[in-house]
Simulated scan of single mutants.
Amino acid sequence: MMGKPITGRSFGGCVRYVVNKQDAKILSADGVRMQSANAMINDFNLQRQMRPELGKAVGHLVLSWSKEDLLKLSDDIMVERAKEYMDKVGIKNTQYAVVRHSDRAHPHLHLIYNRVDNNGKTITDKNNFAKNVKACKEITLKYGYHLGKGKDLVNRQALKGKEKVKYELYDAIKAGMKTATTWKQLEAHLARQGITIAYKYRSGTSEVQGISFEKGDIKMKGSAIDRSLSYGKIDSVLNRNQQVQQYHAGIEEHKPSLADQIRQAISQDVGSEHHHRPGSGKGILETLLEPEFIAAAPDPMGDADKRRRKRKKYEAEHAQSQSSGISR
């Protein structure tokens, strides 16, 4: 079993990417409604508001198994393994949803969770990579899942010379590929570890034909380090990372801002006198707290404090106007 932990900013982008994918199957959820992506997004965002200053409140994890394990993994068992993983890495007392995808040959699931827990505390993402590796290895050994013969299992401390450098290159490149979305980002990540990239171009053209990596006085082709590190395969991973990042960004260019929605709601409320009379319709507070209103609001970002102060001001003014209306 392997895991890929991700943190993001937009529950909207993440949930739609995971839940609305063809053949996606919601296996389990806690604290969020399962009937639609919009309902789930609304529930995640509602709890997120307890920590509006936390930009990256979205926890997203991909758990994958070898295709040899397919017969061992019913939906119920995958949910159990996801819960066991969460317990091992410290994802507790929070909202989550487990969704299985069937778009690849190997069985895998997506876990979306709220980094703002049920008590308003932040679930740390510190040392996510190390905790992920440890938890996956423990679960793999415990249940006898397929154990690959890849480079991840090689004892690095026993290596020397060129073979040691080969695995240092492998580890550094693989780590960089987890987060990089462009070749420049991967180059910058490797440069910090003393590794440079050399591109081989097709004769007389600007088309990249191959790639090599160099550390110290040792230079090796990507495919010689590992078959997964050829130019074409790395480029595919970077493109996929970029696509996932765009989903997480949740860019909604035409949606009005939360401040604009509040101003519009207040304008409508003030313009209708019957809203000031008890029992004769919904006031601004009721409107702001409706699920449809909250679901339409963008995720809270860095200006959350400013929005909160404005909202309090609007609520105070509305309460005063209601009091004046009743006294008449």
Rank of each mutant, 00 (worst) to 15 (best):
Gly3Val: 00
Thr7Tyr: 11
Phe11Asp: 06
Val15Gly: 07
Tyr17Asn: 02
Lys21Asn: 11
Ser28Gly: 01
Asp30Arg: 08
Ser36Leu: 08
Met40Cys: 15
Asn45His: 08
Met50Ser: 12
Glu53Ser: 09
Leu54Glu: 07
Gly55Asn: 10
Gly55Tyr: 13
Val58Phe: 02
Gly59Ala: 03
Gly59Met: 07
Val62His: 00
Ser64Leu: 02
Ser64Val: 00
Ser64Thr: 06
Trp65Pro: 02
Lys67Trp: 14
Glu68Ala: 09
Leu73Gly: 06
Asp76Leu: 12
Ala82Thr: 11
Lys83Asp: 03
Glu84Gly: 07
Val89Tyr: 05
Val89Arg: 01
Lys92Val: 04
Lys92Gly: 04
Asn93Gly: 12
Asn93Ile: 06
Val98Ser: 01
His101Ile: 03
Asp103Leu: 12
Ala105Tyr: 06
Leu111Val: 05
Tyr113Ile: 00
Tyr113His: 04
Asn114Asp: 15
Arg115Cys: 04
Arg115Ser: 01
Val116Met: 15
Val116Asp: 06
Lys126Cys: 03
Lys131Cys: 06
Lys131Pro: 09
Val133Ser: 07
Ala135Ile: 02
Lys137Tyr: 11
Glu138Met: 06
Lys142Asp: 03
Lys149Gly: 15
Gln157Trp: 14
Ala158Asn: 11
Ala158Glu: 15
Lys162Glu: 06
Glu163His: 03
Lys166Asp: 10
Tyr170Asp: 07
Lys174Phe: 08
Lys178His: 05
Ala191Val: 05
Arg192Gln: 11
Gly194Leu: 09
Ile195Glu: 07
Ala198Met: 10
Ala198Trp: 08
Tyr199Thr: 06
Tyr201Arg: 07
Gly204His: 15
Glu207Gln: 10
Ser212Phe: 13
Phe213Ala: 00
Glu214Leu: 14
Lys215Asn: 11
Lys221Trp: 12
Ser223Glu: 15
Arg227Glu: 06
Ser228Gln: 13
Lys233Leu: 14
Ile234Asn: 01
Asp235Arg: 04
Asp235His: 04
Ser236Trp: 07
Ser236Cys: 08
Asn241Trp: 13
Val244Arg: 02
Gly250Met: 05
Glu252Met: 05
Glu252Ile: 05
Glu252Trp: 01
Ser257Ala: 11
Leu258Pro: 11
Ala259Arg: 09
Asp260Pro: 10
Asp260His: 12
Gln264Gly: 09
Asp269Val: 02
Gly279Leu: 14
Gly283Thr: 06
Ile284Gly: 00
Thr287Asp: 09
Leu288Ile: 03
Ile294Asn: 06
Ala297Asp: 00
Pro298Leu: 01
Pro298Ile: 00
Asp299Ile: 15
Asp299Ala: 13
Ala304Met: 11
Ala304Phe: 14
Lys312Cys: 10
Ala316Met: 13
Ser321Arg: 12
Gly325Gln: 15
Gly325Cys: 13
